[in-house]
Design a protein around this nucleic acid. Structure first.
Lengths: 334, 334
DNA sequence: AAAGATTATGTAATCGATTACATAATTAAT
DNA sequence: ATTAATTATGTAATCGATTACATAATCTTT
């Protein structure tokens, strides 16, 4: 691997001149410029970004730290972030934390070390709680989860409304015994649950604690918890899940029990994944605007990079209820 | 952000001593060690990895460059790579190229600049063709796709056998008119097609070119191509797809046409995604051992990092045919 | 107690770039 | 033709770490 020194030597100029040519500074004689460019080509020289960033204390790279890349929500958002970043001339480095606070700290550290211009991050509750001790050296935009206090940029779904909307739909369909499975790792699950309970409360229904579960937001947990709910003396008429991994697990459990959807049990979830409309019956979901989330988060971050003083903002987006066959009206049920 | 100098000043020692304490060198007096550690804690000092790597010319970070993070195959492999890397004390930086050779070069460059220890990469055909001009500064393990020549480490599916196995299954079920959709971006699609055609040939069937398509490996292409195939004067009895995005698109098209699987049309694909077993009828697939691919690739890479001289190896893994309802026997058909 | 071996610490070079500053070369202005 | 202004180039400091080397301090050994 050749360095700027090699190029300087080959072109018989100083390293400063090489640097200037490459940075397209105006004050370089054409003759020298030619020599430098020839040497660069001949040696196949590529500047070492790490050294460049070390010196100039900035880079054209953004970081995206997600909690679970297997979750279609995050892969969809990742693509939107990637595309938006690329359109603005930025690269994207993606990391997966597996909802593990230790990994979160590790990758946050790595991002700082790699001198990224900024980071988009979906943190666990634990990391969120000690956010202020972290003292990150780069601007951050939170997605999907956030602090109660307003001092960090974020792009979020209106989870309260979303949970409420989905619950209201179930109530309007005549469901009364609603089993609900929420993710425990983040604020998101809690908020969706609050919306869910508010809707039930508004309808004059009381909350039955044995129907409401908080679990690791993964399909295995969705599967096992659904089996538990179905095994209750008086099983729920419908299962409400708060992310698509849980939905998939729930669906698997329901299938294994040989129950028919929606005749014997209903199912609704979050995120309009590819398969939600392909399974039969198709699943009713609360779709998140993943493209919009990724794009907004990236733009928010780039604005913050450009102006660190700008007041923080939270962008709250609305979800869209997509009613399909998995939650049709339940006439004549109790 | 505090640097090693600040710590040295605060502890009233030299930067060398700070570095030694942090690197756990043996020859440091306990008293000094204490002072340094106290200063580190007090200043919340975290070493700048970028500077460390610049000097020591190595890092504990691996790169993974995939062609499409939306493809469940790659998310599954990513998780396996991430876990294996983490278990060996390495971080993982993930990049998405969107099957775009320009982005591939960009990220390869970025990886080099970020001084990763090595990279796992699923390249497009185009980048593969100019592989030898690239002169990468780090070891690489290819996954999913590879060069014909054997001079680069790789972990691959036995695509020829896999394509053949899946085709044989269809033939054994009595299917004769088989529509097939392959990805055009990589060697993988070509190899699966060769296996597919070999199976047909062995069974004494001729290849009908209008039934065989090469398209961008994305669900939209799967959708449109399936519609085209279904619209032929004599439509195929079954659709063979060479990745799960194509399968999803094909399924959507079939559903929209109101065709019943498997009574009116069969469908098979690659990769045992979460939804392949959840849709009804469940889809027959050729499952790739994604965990094994990710783990093997990572271990191969780490071995290569440890010993750059070691001869190159290709690890060829076998796929597993999982027969489900989407391709049941077609008695009495022509 | 003196010489030699060992241990502890600091100084300064280094990685590969950028860039402030100094200086040389050219051009413009009087 | 001088001087001033401008343009071009090089020298050296810098970013934040690691580490070779030099040297000071301590411990053994006889």
């Amino acid at each position: 691997m050749s360095s700027i020194k090699d190029v300087a030597k080959a072109a018989n100029v100083s390293t400063a001149t090489v640097s200037r040519v490459l940075a397209k500074h105006p004050h370089v004689r054409p003759a020298l410029r030619e020599r430098v460019l020839a040497a660069v080509a001949q040696l196949e020289y590529r500047p070492n970004l790490i050294a460049r960033n070390l010196r100039s204390q900035q880079s054209k790279t953004l970081g995206l730290i997600v909690s679970d890349i297997r979750n279609p929500f995050f892969t969809a958002v990742s693509r939107a972030v990637e595309d938006t970043a690329y359109a603005h001339g930025y690269n994207l480095l993606l990391c997966n934390t597996d909802e593990n606070p230790e990994k979160e700290l590790l990758y946050l550290q790595l991002m700082g070390a790699e001198q990224v211009a900024g980071v988009i991050f979906s943190p666990t509750l634990q990391t969120l709680n000690r956010w202020h001790e972290l003292h990150l050296s780069f601007p951050t935009v939170l997605i999907d989860r956030s602090l109660r206090s307003g001092d960090v940029d974020a792009v979020l779904l209106d989870n309260l409304s979303a949970g409420s909307l989905l619950a209201q739909h179930l109530l309007s369909q005549g469901y009364r015994r609603i089993g609900a499975i929420f993710g425990e790792a983040s604020t998101t699950g809690r908020e969706r649950q609050r919306g869910f309970e508010a809707a039930l409360h508004d309808a004059g229904l009381s909350i039955q604690p044995e129907y409401v579960r908080f679990v690791r937001p993964q399909s295995e947990a969705g599967y096992h918890t659904t089996l538990e709910l179905l095994g209750l003396p008086e099983p729920p008429q419908v299962i409400f899940t708060s992310n698509s991994l849980l939905t998939a697990g729930a669906l698997q459990a329901i299938r294994e029990q040989g129950l028919h959807i929606p005749a014997q049990i209903g199912l609704v979830g979050f995120d309009d994944t590819a398969w939600a409309s392909l399974v039969q019956p198709a699943i009713t979901v609360l779709a998140q605007p993943t493209d919009e989330i990724g794009r907004s988060a990236t733009e928010l971050l780039l604005q913050r990079v450009a102006d660190p003083q700008r007041p923080t903002r939270k962008i709250i987006l609305q979800g869209e209820l997509i009613v399909r066959e998995s939650s049709v009206e339940q006439r004549g049920r109790t």
